[in-house]
Design a protein around this nucleic acid. Structure first.
Lengths: 325, 325
DNA sequence: CGGAGTTTTGAGACTGGTCAAAGCATGTGG
DNA sequence: CCACATGCTTTGACCAGTCTCAAAACTCCG
């Protein structure tokens, strides 16, 4: 059951409600939960999904995921200032989160892809502080905050999961701060591309060749650069043969050379006292990928597990397709 | 009972252990808890302290704060990569937290002052990702992670408190990202000074005149600037009469003019759709300060509460003193 | 085919970085 | 109490990297 792939994107089946809102009557709830269980079992992000009851815990009473929602390109999933109602697991498509200063200056705080959590950063404050905007036709599973908070008081594992998501986000933010504060434009762009590549790999998608689903301006905004600078650097890297750029299509040609360009630009300090070992943990988002440095992409171990799992589930890994973006 | 003020700093009383380690035998524990309760009752950060049982909750079984610890200037409270054992409430003194990339580039991720939490950002991951280093003679209360996690499963209010601390940190980080990505050197430095000022105000310390407890290099590192740039901007602001700078002593002369320099450089989007109202919420750290814009420092309301409280407790608010730094 | 939005590329301006040297404050030892 | 060393800060001169403005090319979509 491919999701959001090519032409089937707009006609794919929706086991959960089409309304995008919670079903409240008892009958509906039963059908919903059955459908949900069925769908979650097939879901490629089941493992490690907040919405999925954890193996070592007794079944959580409340179903965490109450509905799915399709979000069209450009549509706002939630807006800053709005009451924080739910946390969202991205099931398909791509998002950006963006904050605004009072004078209207916007800063993209992150890009989310399938498997990523959206809105976990406002579970502790009543209101969202970011807009979350779909960059492509997308789909999310919603986990209402109330459910999540209640259940994570019952389940130690779920509590740990929530906290770990929050901490990962903080770690990732610190990484971006290091990037913005200490790295040149070129290093930032390269780190960005490598990060995307690693995240695609972890998803089981092609990692050496992919589509950017955001504009140069959005990349620039995220990296603290102007769009022209981003464009120039892409062109330069292309000339040098490190990557091939055709519009939003990126192909990585010399991964090691790219890594060398950012030197040790890995923002995780965990191993910094043992300088010998290189870590490939994602620079922009801590994706929990560890690797020895003899295999350039040793996030492979994790990725393999994910791919095998997805395959076993008969699930296709969704790839961003420019056509549908 | 002044803390860390002038000459009394090194001789002040220590109700909890001098060893800085937990007392484990039953007798010690009892004495410890009694001392702790006594001291917490006098503590000016009691309100809103993670370590303090919350009013609307049944008494939490385990005492959250198990020990106090004095940290000398330059001493490391915890190191990145180390097992995350506790969260720390800064009771006196000042800290910086710093992360390192693999190639040794360091990025200061924040400065902490009395009342701030340290290490909450790694409660979800086993290991710290930052070094926490005292910038002055300091003192912290330690809340072991185990206690905190257990208790915050029992107490909804404590759970909310922990999550809110984490989210505040994320919000603050996003603010810094906006600062680094979108603001000029001058705007960054001004935002930094205003932020410090507001935090001193919230502490009940003089807000228009204070000591910087960090070097120009540290400010620059945090703001993504070189120390020379920071110095030049301080000099320029001094010439313009907006602030008076004598080494690490800062006096704010024209607060409104400073605010104007950073325009609406407030990173919180909450109110951005109602542009009329200016928000003084701290740009670098979300200190929960709200204010109408007719009083330049309307964080005053909160501050007053804090000061009154401290006064009622007979507690002196510690002020950073360059001599002791 | 035309139009909107995005991307590329160029030329020139300017911010902030680099390097260097002098000034200052603090602390130590004679 | 002074001389000296150390570390921090200030200031200047110069330069590089990035931004700004502008125009043309390209892509996608109706």
């Amino acid at each position: 059951m491919p999701f959001l792939n090519g032409t089937s994107a707009c006609s794919s089946d929706f086991p959960l409600l089409r309304t995008g809102r919670r079903v409240s009557n008892e009958n509906g709830e039963t059908a919903l939960r059955a459908a949900q269980r069925r769908t979650c079992e097939l879901c490629k992000f089941r493992e490690g999904c907040l919405g999925h009851p954890l193996p070592d815990e007794r079944q959580i009473a409340t179903p965490l995921i109450t509905y799915r929602r399709r979000v069209n390109k450009g549509e706002v999933l939630y807006r800053s200032g709005a009451k924080c109602e739910a946390v969202y697991k991205v099931r398909a498509g791509f998002f950006k989160t963006m904050m605004f200063s009072e004078d209207g200056v916007g800063q993209i705080t992150g890009f989310q892809m399938p498997g990523d959590l959206l809105g976990i950063d406002c579970i502790g404050c009543g209101k969202s502080r970011c807009d979350a905007i779909a960059l492509s036709q997308s789909e999310v599973c919603a986990i209402p905050c109330g459910n999540l908070l209640r259940s994570s008081r019952d389940s130690e594992a779920l509590q740990a999961h929530v906290l770990s998501s929050l901490c990962d986000q903080i770690g990732s933010n610190h990484g971006v701060m290091l990037l913005l504060g200490n790295r040149s434009a070129e290093e930032r762009v390269v780190a960005f591309v490598i990060n995307l590549s690693e995240r695609f790999l972890a998803l089981g998608s092609p990692w050496s060749e992919f589509q950017l689903w955001m504009t140069r301006a959005e990349i620039g905004n995220f990296l603290g650069l102007k769009l022209e600078t981003v464009s120039r650097i892409f062109s330069k890297l292309d000339e040098q043969g490190l990557i091939a750029v055709r519009g939003r299509h990126i192909q990585i040609r010399q991964f090691d050379a790219l890594r060398k360009l950012i030197g040790g630009a890995d923002y995780h300090a965990d191993e910094r006292r043992s300088r010998g070992r290189a870590s490939l943990r994602s620079p922009l988002v801590d994706s929990k990928i560890e690797s020895p440095d003899h295999e350039p992409y040793a996030a492979l171990r994790l990725a393999k597990r994910i791919i095998e799992h997805a395959a076993a589930m008969g699930d296709d890994i969704s790839t961003p397709s420019q056509a549908s973006v």
